[in-house]
Write a protein that binds this DNA or RNA. Sequence first.
DNA 1: ACTTAAGCGAGACGGTACGTCTCGTCTTAAC
DNA 2: GTTAAGACGAGACGTACCGTCTCGCTTAAGT
Lengths: 193, 193, 193, 193
Amino acid sequence: MTDESADVPPRRGRPRSTKTREAVLAAARELLLESGYQRLTMEGVASRAGASKSTVYRWWPTKGVLVLDAAADEIAIGSVPDRGTTEDDLRSAIEQLIETFSRPLASIVIFAAITTVEADPEMAAVFREKYVYPWRLTAAQAIERGIERGDMASDNTQFILDVIVGTVFQRTLIIKEPMTEGLADHLLGLLIS
Amino acid sequence: MTDESADVPPRRGRPRSTKTREAVLAAARELLLESGYQRLTMEGVASRAGASKSTVYRWWPTKGVLVLDAAADEIAIGSVPDRGTTEDDLRSAIEQLIETFSRPLASIVIFAAITTVEADPEMAAVFREKYVYPWRLTAAQAIERGIERGDMASDNTQFILDVIVGTVFQRTLIIKEPMTEGLADHLLGLLIS
Amino acid sequence: MTDESADVPPRRGRPRSTKTREAVLAAARELLLESGYQRLTMEGVASRAGASKSTVYRWWPTKGVLVLDAAADEIAIGSVPDRGTTEDDLRSAIEQLIETFSRPLASIVIFAAITTVEADPEMAAVFREKYVYPWRLTAAQAIERGIERGDMASDNTQFILDVIVGTVFQRTLIIKEPMTEGLADHLLGLLIS
Amino acid sequence: MTDESADVPPRRGRPRSTKTREAVLAAARELLLESGYQRLTMEGVASRAGASKSTVYRWWPTKGVLVLDAAADEIAIGSVPDRGTTEDDLRSAIEQLIETFSRPLASIVIFAAITTVEADPEMAAVFREKYVYPWRLTAAQAIERGIERGDMASDNTQFILDVIVGTVFQRTLIIKEPMTEGLADHLLGLLIS
DNA sequence: ACTTAAGCGAGACGGTACGTCTCGTCTTAAC
DNA sequence: GTTAAGACGAGACGTACCGTCTCGCTTAAGT
């Protein structure tokens, strides 16, 4: 009878402090909500968390990595379910987008991840790989089911995705006035023939 | 008999140097294309232009103002003409957007103006007032003409504007892969019933 | 009639602030006396002086350069005069050494300059060039005058210099107990035959 | 048969590793010779020795203590013998000094021990107690024998000690050019009447 | 021609954050 | 109890830009 979980790495040295980790992430969240992404500094996070700069840099080499970690729960968007009808599927997708983009912390971090490509391409890449592509894949599948059923006003999946994401992004993160209520209905009216 | 042009201030002292002004704007354009908006520094612009920092700050109090001035010609988008048919009008609007967003310098500056709200709200405000609203107004008029003719798939003007701008922004400035050719046709197919 | 002082360099830009310069040097002196050379930090000096780090680094690139400047007056040892008799000349030399090594600030800085060679060879080099060699040259001349007169107990100038400097250094900077009063007489008794 | 040495404390747990101890001391010696005292770090010694920092700190609380331990053999200077004549005794003393100060490792450590008082007074104290005073005591006795015999040019023992130590220190550790050969003779010529 | 006033370059200045480094302490699991 | 590993708080390092501030020189328009 052998140990079944033999693939556990043999941890050595002082283990990482959960307390410090959470203090740093909490400090990052607070400062994001107070001052935004640009004005957040690694030094400020360390200070607010009662941690040292070296500890912060040891685990989060850049600001982008840090805030993606700090807001991970809020950013997570899940995947688009298969509810049986095209309208229900697309409505799910659109409402997931609207809901996620409307969370205060998530909106700040997502906006930063998208718009800071130039200064921090790695942040954008991590964000895409981890959050955007998985959702986009299931959303594309939902759209393709709709196309097969003959329900869609366009047969170009990528284009429809761009319409949905672009419009919701525009309305919720750029033009910030509400109108979010009717947004899903308007989009469905346009996309479903 | 009074002075006809009473609003002309009696300029005294050394007049502003056109040469310096143009050297600074040219330096800003070069650095934008070489390094992007974030990595551009006022210090770098002054140095490249052979000007002093105080001269740069005298005329362009912030990086945003400077960059909008430097790219003014490329950013100008004009207004949506009245060509007689809904399709022609909308196609004009969409192609103006695509064309403008595709110019190298304009794309950098517009992207910065839209996404830097947090760090430089004034830049965003100036950009909206001077470039976005005028175009958006004539685009809204074109859409309303289409609604009156009964050509549009939706009767909500602001929503349609968000679809157009959001989709084009998404495709040209966020997801940078081409497909720009078919974009106008796809959008027209969706928006015109 | 032409301008006689045409060789004045044409000063450009904002002139250096004398006030800041003196505040930094005074802060350095205070911290040297309070904490010693090793514990003095550039950051501490800037802070105490109400100056910024960049200003300190602009003018004094290393700690060694800064403290040599801060203590310049106290370190200056002059040169050995020619008083006519060997005894008077040597007594002058020895008393200059003792007096200089006994000043609180000078002793700290000289000790640092001598003993930090390994970590900051430039400081040691500047110190030697500017303060040690000039004095050593005139002291050597005084010794040679004594040798020519047949007054000296040894005819090796460098050796006698090492005896004088080594003994005074040993007594005043290493073994710090007094006995400094009789030191000059004892040395003269030994060196003059 | 019982344990004969009952006064040995009943050691428990893992015994100290002789191998590790020697690896650390050897690493310290290597790094002293390669980089000098200032640039030697506890971290570097641990790393070179394949030991952990905590092990190094457990047994050698400071860099000074470690380095004195690592160079103990080379630093040891013995005591001044009584050879019967003043000249032989003093020559022994001076040559012991010169020889010790000329060993590469010893010169580094002694120089550090003497000049690091400010930063590490404990190191200086340990060095004085363990190496300086014992030798100084026997050297003083040799000098006093010379004074009693009427051989010395001065009757102040401490002063003569300072002349000897100061001059040799000056010549071998500060001014590093040779001339060490004639040094003992020159000193004897001066000190013996 | 002479005065006046703004433009301009150079560059010093106080700040602030950067990311790196070493320090000496602490916390584990393995031995 | 000792060890290797290595996380941790602390704090200085030297650099880069920020936006402001003197300076002395230049350049015209108004006298």
